[in-house]
């Protein structure tokens, strides 16, 4: 296997209009069109989708799991962003 491995593409499927695309898995392909074709044959054999996205895995920028706590820390102490933070007296309706 001295040859170069085909690049890896991540596959995202929109199962029906109105829903977001969702990660399904990955495929290898020599080029973008082949990645779409392979994704269709691998992940939508039973009409699982109406739209497919493929993106080269090495183009995805991801947060680092080891830094999760620090990375998401700014949101931790802002509980006033949640409606449950506010106390509303009994008798106030529609709020």
């Amino acid at each position: 296997m001295s040859k170069q491995e085909w690049p890896l593409y991540e596959v995202f499927i929109r199962s029906k209009s109105g829903l977001s695309h969702r990660h399904a898995g990955s495929v290898h392909a020599a080029d973008d069109q082949m990645a779409l074709d392979n994704a269709r044959d691998t992940y939508t054999r039973r009409s699982e989708g109406v739209s497919l996205w493929v993106v080269r895995s090495d183009r995805i920028i991801a947060s680092d799991p080891a830094e999760t706590a620090a990375f998401f820390e700014p949101a931790e102490d802002k509980i006033y962003r949640h409606p449950t933070f506010y106390e509303i007296p009994d008798g106030v309706e529609n709020l």
Binding site: E5, L8, G25, S26, V27, D41, T42
Partner: peptide, 27 residues
């Protein structure tokens, strides 16, 4: 039979997330 191929591909794809290459597994 096509499904079996698909199952193989889902699984290779899952294994690759652990840092082993597809070519290595096939080899």
């Amino acid at each position: 039979v096509q499904d079996e191929a698909g199952h193989g591909l889902y699984l290779y794809s899952a294994a690759e997330t652990l840092g082993v290459s597809r070519d290595q597994m096939v080899a």
